[in-house]
Computed example of a mutant assay.
Amino acid sequence: MLEGMHYQNAYICDDLEAGIALFRGRGMTKEPIIIPVDQTVQTPEGPKRQKGRICFIWIGDLQYELIENEIDEVGIYANCLSNGGPLRFHHICFRIDDWEDFRARVDEQEFPVAMERDLTGEDPNGLKFLYLDARKVFGHYIEYTWMPEAMWQQIRAM
């Protein structure tokens, strides 16, 4: 299942500031905002907590997400093994236009859902996301997101 608009490559790092520093002089034009994240996501085994810090760096039309993991009850970030460098590739992300159609087909395809969250219940302008575990074919997870256009424009401006 590969569909939507690929806009993001994501990396795990043990030190977010050191990860950001690697992008300076390599196309990063403005300093990213560090966002603390503490959330409960749905998994096949039930609700689990994810806590850490993230930032988004845009270079051209590609967003780089850096993730510093603190609490990972899902195990989705902690299972990203060290490659000897400060950044470890973790997933790509696609933006989906029609979430209901997409979500109806997720359970019919081969990759299991690792985790998902729907923030529209908390905020009608919130986003929805899910991760598929595509490691057996692609070697990484695939994230899919849906968000209102206004939120997309806000993310693009970060």
Rank of each mutant, 00 (worst) to 15 (best):
D15K: 02
D15L: 02
L16P: 00
L16V: 02
E17Q: 15
E17I: 03
E17L: 09
A18H: 04
G19W: 00
I20M: 04
A21Q: 07
L22E: 02
G25I: 11
G25P: 10
G25S: 14
R26P: 02
R26A: 13
R26T: 10
G27C: 13
G27F: 13
G27T: 14
M28Q: 12
T29D: 10
K30M: 12
E31C: 05
E31Y: 05
P32Q: 00
P32G: 02
I34Y: 02
I34F: 00
P36V: 02
P36C: 03
V37R: 07
V37N: 04
D38L: 10
D38V: 11
D38T: 10
Q39H: 09
Q39L: 12
Q39F: 13
T40V: 14
T43R: 03
T43N: 00
P44N: 02
E45P: 01
E45A: 14
G46M: 10
P47C: 00
K48F: 06
K48L: 06
R49A: 08
R49W: 05
R49Y: 05
Q50Y: 06
K51T: 06
K51W: 00
K51E: 13
G52K: 04
R53H: 11
I54G: 09
I54R: 07
I54S: 07
I54L: 13
C55E: 05
F56T: 04
I57V: 12
I57T: 09
I57F: 10
W58S: 09
I59H: 09
G60K: 12
G60I: 14
D61G: 08
Q63G: 04
Q63M: 14
Y64K: 13
I67H: 15
I67R: 07
N69Q: 10
N69T: 15
N69C: 11
N69I: 10
N69L: 00
I71M: 10
I71V: 15
I71N: 10
D72T: 01
D72G: 14
E73G: 01
V74S: 13
V74G: 08
I76H: 00
Y77W: 13
A78L: 11
N79T: 08
N79S: 07
C80A: 10
L81E: 11
L81V: 15
L81C: 08
S82I: 02
S82K: 04
N83F: 06
N83E: 07
G84F: 08
P86G: 03
R88N: 00
R88A: 02
H90K: 07
H90C: 08
I92K: 01
I92P: 01
I92R: 02
I92L: 05
I92Q: 07
C93E: 01
C93F: 00
F94G: 05
F94N: 12
R95T: 11
I96M: 06
I96D: 04
I96C: 15
D97W: 14
D97S: 13
D97L: 15
D97Y: 14
D98G: 13
W99R: 12
W99L: 09
D101N: 08
D101I: 13
D101Y: 06
F102A: 05
F102H: 13
R103Y: 11
R103M: 09
A104S: 15
R105C: 09
R105Q: 15
V106C: 05
D107A: 14
E108R: 11
Q109W: 09
Q109N: 03
Q109L: 01
Q109C: 03
E110T: 06
E110D: 11
F111H: 06
